[in-house]
Design a protein around this nucleic acid. Structure first.
Length: 751
DNA sequence: AAAGCGTTTATTTTT
DNA sequence: TAAACGCTTT
């Protein structure tokens, strides 16, 4: 039908080509690492536009990060220059935010809502707890938030949550959840999960809005489908059943976000929910050497939660994988630095082709320190720019200006820089506003205008003067926001609030903070082509939804320091995966749960498959954490590295039976036996693998059948040490799940 | 209200 | 380690 020279279809292998050209009916693409997945997606979009007469506005492409979205747009633009500007490409969160701004008013959402980040969420919960007079220490805000987030991700709202709460903890959460939601609504705030859940609600409660988007988007594409959660999948289903043309691309072996409630089952359900789905498997790897691919395949093979794939490559065999044991984290960093110097000196590669990867962000520090000493140019991805205090302060001014109801932002900056408004004043102000039934912003305005109110104002003269001055400043900024673009608005904020001078206190730290604010202005400049108000709105949205991986920039020649999570989707000639120790990878928080260990293994797999030519795996025998040094064992995952693919003298790849790895494996596998009773292994714990010499008496272990005088028979689903005692979580028949102390509960084990 | 001091506590991963 | 909290003093 099309000529052989067709630019969009040439140089695609048969599987890729069929993934590009199968445009009628649902498609599920299972794409191994380095199999040309991005290529397939961009070419598919180009193919739709140029060959199928699909208008660009009818294409909706969902990516995992905003950066991926920008790149995808750029690549499509190269293929189909004229039509790409109307495409909708973005993350679920960004797309949902856009939909809600446009149509959210149908379900009572203000078009100028602001997006609450984690700090805001904590602040809101803290206020809720204060109102309830609950002790923050006993009820950690983050614990509530994690339960609330889990509920939202599976589309359980406060009412349903409350209705199904059948234990004390859930009942408490239900109360907090409901109040938290009210507080967000009062402040015109949506948290990340709300963006998704509210979109689903909008679509299900308002069929004309759903119809509108269904008709518009005839072709939906979703990348990284293995990392979608239930709410995201619901959106795909709601929109996709319209034209019945969704195309999703994923790889369950690269699923590393279950902690963010991603659900691999979405891949399985897709075929069920979209009958007639055509499944296309991309198995040829174009990225890595044969050695690296082979090692990665062996590494992922032990996972039980996966479909067997036959990945292959026609690339050269390449060099062996290097395994290095360092004495401690400093030596590990020095080793990596010297290897990089060697590689660059030998002109094997440039700095920008090299990445150093680690499990946790805190591991980056020692690399930064060492690279600085070696004068090795480097760039840390994920420095959490938008989480820095000074950046958030400036953003809070802008947010308050855009959304006067955003009380979280108001609380944040009402006294920054210090202007004589303390905790007491603020608290009185909240109470007064609530009594009057107005927002805190409005209450301040009443006060500044000396307006008569039904409830007398409890605030003293001094604080009153301070608040009036604050109101005046905000008003100046708000006026300015109608006249100048956001970058100039930030200048204005720094000037009228005195925040600029407040930061420049002469210290080195102050200088660093000031530099960050300047950097923020540089970012804001990108929004200068908008009209003033639109410029502010667009900048705030971008700032709220920006991801760490978004800042990754290959243009400067520097080594990339990056977490394994953030490295997903990237590739480098040379990859160092560091800190491969028990407790780090797999992480100590994952170690006693089989499923979580599988995810840690996938994380390592993702890291290994980022490498094109050379792969280094390192660990330290000793490592300091919290300033305390301690001995470390090499990661259990070294057991699954084929000896013939590696080189090095590290202990982890030497010796046989009786070494550390075997002991580790024996101890751990006892806790990992498959369960016959159907209880999710996710709740299993490896307490029975605790080191000997520990004085605790192990009485119960996961999986024990037990009987209780009142609750009857049950199964132990997890065990936690509590000093010399155990806290046992038991699922009883016909009872909600109970947590019991072994010494008090009179539990008997039944054989 | 703010600043200064000592104690504590946590670090998984992020849209 | 270093941020964050809580207590005391100014």
């Amino acid at each position: 039908m099309f000529p052989e020279t067709d630019a969009i279809l040439e140089r695609l292998n048969p599987a890729q080509r069929s993934a590009v050209t199968t445009v009628d009916g649902p498609v599920l693409v299972l794409a191994g690492p380095g199999s040309g997945k991005t290529r397939v997606i961009t070419h598919r979009i180009a193919y739709l536009l140029s060959h199928c007469h699909v208008p660009a506005y009818a294409v909706l492409a969902v990516t995992f990060t905003n950066k991926a979205a920008r790149e995808m747009l750029e690549r499509v633009r190269v293929l189909v220059p004229s039509q790409s500007s109307q495409l909708t490409i973005g993350t679920f969160h960004a797309i949902c935010a856009r939909i809600l701004r446009r149509d959210g008013s149908a379900i009572g959402i203000s078009p100028t809502f602001t997006i609450a980040d984690e700090d805001d969420q904590v602040a809101v919960v803290k206020r809720v707890l204060k109102d309830l007079d609950w002790d923050e220490k006993r009820n950690p805000p983050r614990a509530f938030l994690s339960r609330i987030s889990a509920a939202k991700s599976i589309l359980v709202g406060p009412r349903e949550f409350s209705a199904s709460a059948d234990n004390f903890a859930d009942e408490q959460t239900a109360i907090v959840y409901s109040r938290y939601q009210d507080a967000l609504a009062a402040a015109d705030l949506l948290d990340f999960d709300d963006l998704l859940m509210s979109t689903v609600r909008l679509f299900t409660e308002n069929s004309s809005v759903l119809q509108k988007y269904r008709e518009r988007y005839s072709h939906i594409l979703v990348d990284e489908f293995q990392d979608t959660n239930v709410a995201q999948y619901a959106i795909v289903r709601l929109l996709g059943t319209g034209h019945n043309n969704p195309c999703v691309v994923g790889d369950e072996d690269q699923s590393v976000y279950s902690w963010r409630h991603a659900d691999i089952r979405n891949i399985l359900n897709f075929e069920r929910d979209f009958p007639g789905t055509q499944v296309i498997v991309l198995e040829q790897n174009y990225r890595s050497t044969r050695t690296i691919l082979q090692a990665a395949r062996k590494m992922i093979a032990p996972n039980r939660q996966r479909k067997e794939k036959s990945l292959f490559t026609e690339n050269e065999v390449g060099e062996r994988i290097v395994v290095f044991e360092a004495y401690d984290e400093n030596e590990e960093a020095s080793y990596v630095a010297s290897q990089i110097e060697r590689l660059v000196a030998a002109q094997t590669c440039r700095l920008r082709d090299i990445a150093v990867m680690y499990r946790t962000n805190s591991q980056s520090r020692v690399f930064e320190k060492t690279f600085l000493r070696h004068r090795l140019p480097h760039k840390v991805v994920g420095m959490r720019f938008y989480e820095r205090k000074e950046v958030r302060d400036v953003l809070a001014y802008l947010r308050l200006c855009y959304n006067p109801n955003d009380v979280t932002s108001l609380d944040r900056i009402v006294n920054v820089p210090p202007r004589q408004i303390g905790a007491k004043t603020l608290s009185d102000l909240h109470v007064w506003a609530a009594r009057l039934g107005v927002s805190v912003s409005e209450a301040i305005q009443y006060l500044a205008a000396e307006r008569e109110t039904a409830v007398p104002c409890p605030i003293g003269t001094r604080a009153r003067t301070a608040l009036t001055e604050f109101a005046r400043i905000i008003e100046i900024i708000r006026r300015a926001s109608r006249e100048m673009v956001v970058a100039r608005l930030i200048d204005k904020v720094l000037e009228v609030t005195g925040y600029g001078d407040f930061l420049k206190d002469g210290t080195e730290e102050g200088q660093g903070r000031w530099d960050n604010v300047r950097e923020l202005i540089t970012v804001a400049e990108e929004f200068s082509h908008y009209e003033p108000e639109a410029s502010l709105a667009a900048f705030l949205e971008d700032a709220a939804l920006a991801a760490d991986a978004d800042e990754y920039d290959a243009s400067t020649d520097a080594v990339t320091l990056i977490t394994l999570h953030a490295a997903k989707g990237l590739e480098f000639d040379v990859v160092f995966i560091t800190g491969l120790e028990e407790g780090i990878c797999p992480h100590s928080r994952s170690i006693d749960d089989e499923r979580q260990v599988e995810e840690e293994r996938r994380l390592l797999y993702v890291g290994m498959t980022r490498a094109r030519r050379r792969l280094f795996l390192t660990y330290a025998a000793r490592r300091s954490q919290f300033g305390e040094a301690g001995a470390r064992q090499p990661s259990r995952f070294f057991k699954d590295l084929s000896r013939d693919l590696v080189q090095g003298t590290a202990r982890a790849i030497q010796g046989h039976g009786g070494d550390w790895a075997h002991q580790e494996r024996r101890a751990v596998s006892a806790a990992f036996l498959p369960r016959a009773d159907g209880w999710s292994s996710r709740f299993e714990s490896a307490v029975d693998a605790a080191p000997a010499g520990d004085q605790t008496v192990v009485r119960f272990k996961t999986g024990d059948r037990v009987v209780h005088p009142r609750f009857g028979e049950g199964t132990v689903i997890s065990v936690e040490q509590r000093g010399g005692d155990q806290e046992v979580t038991v699922a009883f028949r016909d009872q909600p799940i109970k947590r019991l102390l072994a010494s008090l509960a009179n539990l008997q084990i039944v054989s």
